[in-house]
Design a protein around this nucleic acid. Structure first.
Length: 282
DNA sequence: CACCAGGTACTGT
DNA sequence: ACAGTACATGGT
């Protein structure tokens, strides 16, 4: 068991804020997270993280967002009392750095669904196509590489509904290793360029692309607008948004553009507080 | 039995 | 460019 000294970090808020789906809270306050083919078991006590990871090459600290200059980011997005209250309520929530393909697949499955079902779908996909692993005496399945998702008919038995064919096609596109969807390739592009590239994938629209860019590509200006964020933003910033949009009715793009102008280049961080706060406040 | 769930693709104007 | 609608599935 290794330890990490942390500050400005909440393991629970980070994992439970809807960024990642393949985790569970086990005994002794230990979370088990599967990211790609790595299994991480970890627990927080104050500013100590105790952890073990199945893959010695996996960058746990990077995955957890511990390299971010948290104080500066929080200061930069703390533009009003509403966001400040959400930050205070979930202080230590960080944006993860997830594997790009798994994040893409996860949010293709997320569209027009709900979190318990998304989790079930992804576990089913992993059990069907992933590699069987054992860690800490327990069985796990890796999240399959795109090449491992080899059968549409099997994928259609994973409960994805109409998303199965989107995921299957996206896996085929990702499989080409010169497809341009690696983290390195996407990072070379601008936010808009990378978003356009991702939206060429079936099942990836504006919102899902922003989730991928934010949670796995380090584009913190990405501001995913789902129904929760839409409701919260209109509820809390309705008048300002109306002014910003010249009285047009707010749509996803207007909300996101307003958010970037209001919160700045780390608007995506603000989004995650707004989303998590909306979901956890009753 | 409606209605909803971290939206997207497709159609018609 | 923009609004309207179908879409698989499962839970309440």
């Amino acid at each position: 068991m290794k330890t990490l000294r942390v500050s400005d970090f909440s393991l629970a808020s980070t994992l439970e804020s809807g960024q990642v789906f393949r985790y569970h809270l086990g005994s002794g306050g230990f979370y088990c997270v599967v990211a790609g083919n790595s299994i991480i078991k970890l627990q927080q006590e104050g500013n100590i993280i105790r952890y073990a990871c199945s893959n010695p090459k996996f960058g746990v600290a990077i995955f957890l967002g511990l390299s971010h200059d948290y104080g500066s980011i929080m200061k930069s997005i703390s533009k009003d009392e509403k966001i400040s209250a959400a930050i205070k309520a979930h202080y230590g929530l960080r944006i993860l750095g997830q594997p790009v393909w798994e994040c893409t697949a996860s949010f293709i499955c997320s569209s027009f669904s709900n979190i318990p079902r998304i989790k079930r779908c992804l576990e089913s996909v992993a059990a069907t196509f992933g590699s069987k692993l054992e860690f800490d005496g327990l069985p796990f399945f890796s999240f399959p590489q795109p090449q491992q998702i080899s059968s549409l008919s099997k994928l259609q038995k994973c409960g994805l509904g109409y998303r199965a064919k989107y995921l299957f096609e996206a896996a085929k596109i990702f499989s080409g290793n010169s497809s341009g969807y690696s983290l390195q390739q996407l990072r070379k592009l601008s936010y808009e360029g990378a978003k356009k590239r991702l939206m060429e994938l079936p099942g990836v629209g504006s919102k899902v692309a922003d989730c991928i860019l934010l949670f796995s590509c380090g584009f913190y200006e990405a501001f995913p607008v789902d129904v929760w964020v839409m409701r919260a933003m209109v509820g809390q910033y309705g008048n300002e948004i109306k002014k910003f949009a010249a009285a047009k009715k707010p749509n996803e793009k207007i909300i996101a553009d307003f958010a970037r102008s209001h919160f700045g280049k780390y608007a995506g961080y603000a989004q995650q507080f707004i989303y998590h706060d909306a979901r956890t406040s009753r």
